[in-house]
Write a protein that binds this DNA or RNA. Structure first.
Length: 208
DNA sequence: TGCCAGGCCCTCTTTAGGGCCTT
């Protein structure tokens, strides 16, 4: 696969439009089928974390109070990501916070997002469900830490992305799976996966 | 511990409703 960065946010809730903010981010750089670099940091956005979220993630208000400001962390992670395309599990969620937090510091990143959840629905329709933890267990991938912490979730989403890449290569005889092909797969109706690969898989092979 | 959002997807659909997934 062409180099991509897998990101994962922990936040105070589900929607930046409702005032929710990021509390932690991790970014995992994958190249040539393996993780080659990582960035992770808690961040202080100056908002209170609901107790439910504290229990869910293990990220407390005390931890975030001592973290660097969100503006600093987002600038650092944006520099880390650069122009590389992004992957996230349920990317619509992470994209909302990525765009909202970067907008707060006057930055934007135009690169494409691919979604490991939507791709897994196409490639692994037989999985019990398509939650990250379920897919990690289903595929026999390493549990790299506590679920709902950014570093662990980003690493596991990265391993899942590599697993999906290998599954597509073996199933369809592809030489490579580009980020663009992942995007096409996630937008393809589930009955049209073969047609999508036939149309775009060849162009992807050897391009990444 | 979730009542909050929103994009995507499926079907008992398309003039709609509801489940999945993320925190």
């Amino acid at each position: 696969m062409d180099p991509v960065v897998v990101i994962d946010f922990e936040t105070t809730g589900l929607s930046p439009d409702m005032g929710d903010r990021a509390t932690e981010i991790a970014a995992v750089f994958i190249r040539d089928g393996r993780i080659v670099d990582q960035y992770q940091s808690l961040m202080n956005a100056g908002v209170r974390i609901p107790s439910f979220i504290e229990h869910l993630t293990g990220i407390s208000n005390a931890m975030v109070r001592e973290a660097p400001p969100a503006s600093q962390v987002m600038a650092e992670v944006a520099d880390f990501v650069g122009d590389y395309p992004l992957v996230a599990h349920n990317a619509s969620f992470d994209r909302k916070f990525w765009d909202a937090e970067l907008a707060r510091i006057g930055r934007r990143t135009p690169q494409a997002f691919a979604c490991s959840m939507l791709v897994s629905r196409r490639v692994l329709p037989q999985a019990p469900n398509h939650k990250l933890g379920t897919l990690v267990e289903y595929a026999g991938l390493p549990v790299t830490g506590r679920y709902h912490r950014a570093q662990a979730d980003a690493e596991m989403a990265a391993y899942l992305t590599l697993y999906l890449e290998r599954a597509l290569m073996e199933r369809f005889g592809l030489q490579a799976v580009s980020h663009d092909l992942l995007g096409r797969i996630q937008r393809t109706a589930k009955t049209q996966l073969e047609n999508c690969i036939a149309r775009y898989g060849g162009a992807a092979a050897g391009s990444g």
